[in-house]
C-alpha cells in the first residue's frame, strides 16, 4: 500500500458575487499517493483550477473563502496553519506550474534571479551555491544552454522554454507534490510532447506526486494513473484511467469521452452533449447534470445524488442515481 501524500477532504470554496456567495467547489475529496499522477478533468468553469488554488491557498481572501474542509499534506492541515508557515510549504512541499508560462514569470527579472530567489528562500545556502543549483535544474529540464538562459529575460524565450523554466523553478526545491494546472494548453503539440515527457521523467526519478489538471482527455490517457472528473464544482466520477475510458459510469464522463475526436478513427460526425454548463449562481435543483443528461429521470431533477464508492477500497466513485436503476434513454427532455 503506497502512502498518501495529499488528502483533500470535503473542500468547499465560495466566491462573492453581487453580495451573495456562490459555491465554486463543493465537497471535493480526493487523495494523491507518492509517485502517482492524478488527473483532474472537466470543462472550463467546473472548478478544477479553484480546487488547486484552494490547496495552495492562493485565492484572494477579499472575495473568496474556503468555508469547509481539510487539505492534509504529510498529515498536516494546510487550511489551519498561518500565512508564514504556508509560505514555507509553497515551493518546498507543494509547487505549482501554471497554464500560461509567459504570464507567470516576472518580465522585469532575469531567469537566473527568479530561479535563485526560490532556492535561497527555502535553503540556507550561499548565492553561489544557489546559482549552481539553478544551473543544474535548468540542465535537468533539458534547456540546451543554461548559462545563456539564466541571463535572459522571459520575453526572450519561447513558450516551451518558459514552461521548462517554470518546471525547473517548481522542481528546484524538490517538492513532494507538483500541481500542474493545464501545463501544456498554451503550447503546440510537438512542444507539448516534450513537456509531458519531462514531467513523466521527473515523477519517475524523484517519486513526486503530480496533480495534473487538464481538459484534454488525450493528455490524461497518456499521463495519469487515476482520474477524477469534475462537473459544476463537484466530483462526478473517480476511477483508474483504464477503466474510466473503457467503462465510464457517469453519463457526463461518457459524453465527454465520446465527444473527443479521435485520431485515426475515421469518424465523420461526433456524438455531442446538448446544452452548456450551468451558471454557478443558478444551479439546477437536483443533479447538476440532469438538464443535459439523456438518461435523466424524475428523481434526478428533484434530488442530488451522492458520491458513492462503487468498490470496497473507495478508489472508484460515482455520483449518479443510475447506479441503482437500469438506464432508459429519455428522448424528449
Amino acid at each position: 500500500m503506497s502512502e498518501k501524500l495529499l488528502e483533500v477532504k470535503n473542500l468547499r470554496t465560495e466566491f462573492k458575487r453581487d453580495k451573495s456567495w456562490v459555491t465554486a467547489v463543493n465537497h471535493v475529496s480526493f487523495s494523491i499517493n507518492r509517485g502517482e499522477i492524478l488527473g483532474l478533468v472537466g470543462e472550463s468553469g467546473c472548478g478544477k483550477s479553484v480546487t488547486s488554488l484552494s490547496i495552495m491557498r492562493l485565492l484572494a481572501t477579499r472575495n473568496s473563502k474556503i468555508s469547509e474542509g481539510e487539505v492534509l499534506i504529510n498529515s498536516r492541515d494546510l487550511l489551519q496553519i498561518n500565512k508564514k508557515a504556508m509560505c514555507k510549504v509553497r515551493g518546498r512541499e507543494i509547487a505549482m506550474i501554471f497554464q500560461e508560462p509567459m504570464n507567470s514569470l516576472n518580465p522585469c527579472m532575469r531567469i537566473g534571479r527568479q530561479l535563485t530567489e526560490a532556492i535561497l528562500l527555502h535553503n540556507e545556502i550561499s548565492k553561489e551555491a544557489a546559482a549552481s543549483r539553478a544551473y543544474d535544474v535548468l540542465k535537468a529540464v533539458g534547456i540546451p544552454e543554461p548559462n545563456m538562459t539564466l541571463k535572459s529575460y522571459p520575453h526572450q524565450l519561447s513558450g516551451g522554454m518558459c514552461q521548462r523554466v517554470m518546471i525547473a523553478m517548481a522542481m528546484s526545491c524538490e517538492p513532494e507534490l507538483l500541481i500542474a494546472d493545464e501545463p501544456t494548453t498554451a503550447l503546440d503539440v510537438t512542444i507539448q510532447a516534450q513537456i509531458l515527457e519531462l514531467m513523466e521523467e521527473i515523477r519517475e526519478k524523484r517519486n513526486t506526486g503530480i496533480l495534473l489538471i487538464t481538459h484534454d482527455l488525450g493528455v490524461v490517457a497518456e499521463m495519469c494513473s487515476r482520474v477524477v472528473v469534475m462537473y459544476a464544482g463537484r466530483i462526478v466520477e473517480e476511477k483508474p484511467v483504464k477503466e474510466l475510458f473503457e467503462c465510464p459510469q457517469h453519463p457526463y464522463t461518457q459524453g465527454l469521452i465520446e465527444s473527443v475526436p479521435k485520431l485515426g478513427s475515421n469518424m465523420t460526425s461526433l456524438p455531442s452533449i446538448p446544452g452548456s454548463v450551468p451558471d454557478l449562481a443558478v444551479m439546477p435543483k437536483g443533479c447538476k447534470f440532469a438538464p443535459r443528461c439523456k438518461f435523466a429521470m424524475e428523481i434526478c431533477r428533484e434530488q442530488e445524488p451522492s458520491l458513492e464508492a462503487t468498490d470496497e477500497t473507495g478508489t472508484r466513485r460515482c455520483r449518479c442515481h443510475l447506479l441503482h436503476t437500469d438506464r432508459q434513454e429519455v428522448t424528449s427532455v
Binding site: 503539440v189 510537438t190 488525450g218 485520431l263
Partner: peptide
C-alpha cells in the same frame, strides 16, 4: 506532428 497528438485511449 501525428505522433505527438495525445490519444484518449490509455490502452
Amino acid at each position: 506532428l501525428l505522433s505527438a497528438v495525445p490519444v484518449p485511449d490509455p490502452g
